[in-house]
């Protein structure tokens, strides 16, 4: 192997990577920065990253008839308290957790047995069924959103948690991913479990599931990120009941239609929404790599 590092080539490589990283990070930078600044600083684009943190007057508070002195706050406190006051953000976060967790758990409950059957059981038409799974990967969500909405509406499920969860319970991507992973699990392990007296379902939950933890984590990242951040489907399925809003829908609360958007609290909300995801990802990433390096089957 050629271990010689050419300095110019390395520099170019790093330059490209740094540029890419900047492009990705910039919106986050703006989000966090805006969540710290006063409205005036945001509009005039001053104050650097943290803003001057000069005490500001909450005009809305004054309009409600409070004395001006009682409405003075530092911008960062104002933004983050408004995020929770103006909209029931805590409720939205709990909704988000409930919905994404339900979706993920049911997806696993469905995908694991399917993947097991598609990879380890021999039955007539197996390849055809797997072909159908692959075919379903090609269908864009938006193409079938309307029919699904109509179906849910007909059985009266719009504006329920069920309407947020049910359409996502069967993840063909999950089935595909787990099937590919199960293909690498040696058949001997399954035969050994059969000899030990496990039923096929016990094999799935007690043998395949623990060995598949790295793959499940990978799938969890995809699934949780997708559904935690999803704006499109909750916007379709939840038409009136604000109690069912997921965090991304909660952001809409700060989009003033006539009197301009309230950027500070809005960005504070956005920061609060993405923080658990980033934390979870960093944690999972470590486990994820551990899982891959430790999973010596042989």
């Amino acid at each position: 192997m050629n271990n010689q590092v050419h300095p110019v080539r390395e520099a170019i490589k790093h330059a490209v990577l740094i540029l890419g990283a900047l492009i990705v990070i910039l919106p986050f930078y703006v989000m966090v920065s805006y969540s710290l600044k006063s409205p005036h600083e945001i509009e005039s684009n001053t104050g650097g990253f943290f803003g001057a943190q000069e005490p500001m007057v909450d005009e809305y508070c004054v309009k409600l008839g409070n004395p001006r002195d009682a409405c003075v706050e530092t911008p960062v406190v104002y933004n983050y308290t408004q995020a929770f006051k103006k909209a029931p953000l805590l409720r939205y976060l709990l909704n988000g957790i409930l919905v994404t967790a339900s979706i993920f758990i049911i997806q696993v409950l469905v995908a694991l047995p399917c993947a097991y059957a598609l990879s380890k059981l021999k039955f007539w038409g197996r390849d055809f069924v797997f072909g159908l799974v692959m075919f379903c990967l090609l269908i864009p969500v938006h193409a079938i959103a309307l029919p699904i909405y109509i179906m849910l509406a007909k059985i009266g499920l719009t504006n329920t948690y069920a309407s947020l969860v049910i359409p996502w319970t069967i993840s063909v991507f999950g089935i595909f991913l787990m099937r590919q992973f199960f293909m690498t699990v040696p058949d001997d392990l399954i035969d050994a479990a059969r000899m030990d007296g496990m039923s096929e379902f016990s094999i799935i939950w007690k043998v395949m599931l623990p060995t598949a933890v790295p793959a499940l984590l990978a799938f969890a990242i995809f699934s949780v990120v997708a559904h935690w951040n999803d704006y499109f489907w909750p916007r379709v399925a939840i038409t009136g009941n604000r109690d069912l809003y997921t965090p991304p829908l909660g952001l809409r609360e700060f989009k003033g239609d006539a009197d301009g958007s309230i950027w500070g609290p809005m960005m504070a909300t956005a920061t609060i929404i993405v923080t658990p995801l980033i934390a979870a990802f960093l944690l999972a990433q470590r486990r994820f790599i551990e899982g891959i390096t430790l999973s010596g089957m042989k």
Partner: peptide
């Protein structure tokens, strides 16, 4: 049965 790959439960 004893298998060639031993087939122990890795977890």
């Amino acid at each position: 049965m004893v298998f060639q790959s031993y087939a122990l439960y890795p977890h």
